[in-house]
Amino acid sequence: MSLSDRLHPGINLAGTDPESHEAAEEVLFGFWIFLMSDLVLFAVLFATYAAMSVQGIAAGPGPAEVFDLTAAFLETLLLLLSSFAFGFALLAMKYRENRRSVLAWLLVTGILGLAFVGMELHDYYVMVTAHGATPQVSGFLSAYYLLTGTHALHVSSGLVWMAIMAIQVAMFGFDKRVKLRLMRLALFWHMLDVVWIGIFTFVYLFGVTS
């Protein structure tokens, strides 16, 4: 099998580990189906938010009053760099099978992800304390907390998964199963960054513009 034989999206292991590469096609395609169903969940939340943010403000504060664009920009950078760092973790796994470098990249990814979740919680705190913008004030705020909260919950569960994978890498090394799990986690992590593009554009930037 040559280095360029690709069976599935994402990092392919052809060339460096043909056995895992053969096994990857099926499980990764299955994981893509999960990701797409997860995307459907987010799409429904986006649709609800789109309707609520225009027609459901009630007597509460509007998007432009409660959103902090600087914080949203920093959160975007944190998640983007985190996604990028995970890519390098996978490349270290593929080409070097070096536990230390993979763990180091996973640590960078995890810290950036944790900082992202921390900043979002801080955003919520500021919104609630400075603007009294709690979820029960209006349909807009309910939909906002539901959409961004679901995303933050996904990122948090990704962080738990990442911690478990770090332990597995440290304990079992680069077993076939460990590799395939890391590859699926990478897809999950990159997909959450794609969903965040939608959130920063359609929630934060649209909210402040209109």
């Binding site: 690709r6 999206p9 994402g10 990092i11 392919n12 996604s83 990028f84 890519g87 897809l187 990159h190 997909m191 960054d193 794609v194 593009i197």
Partner: peptide, 9 residues
């Protein structure tokens, strides 16, 4: 861009 360069679609 994310799909092409990070998810390799």
């Amino acid at each position: 861009v994310h799909l092409r360069f990070f998810l390799h679609i």
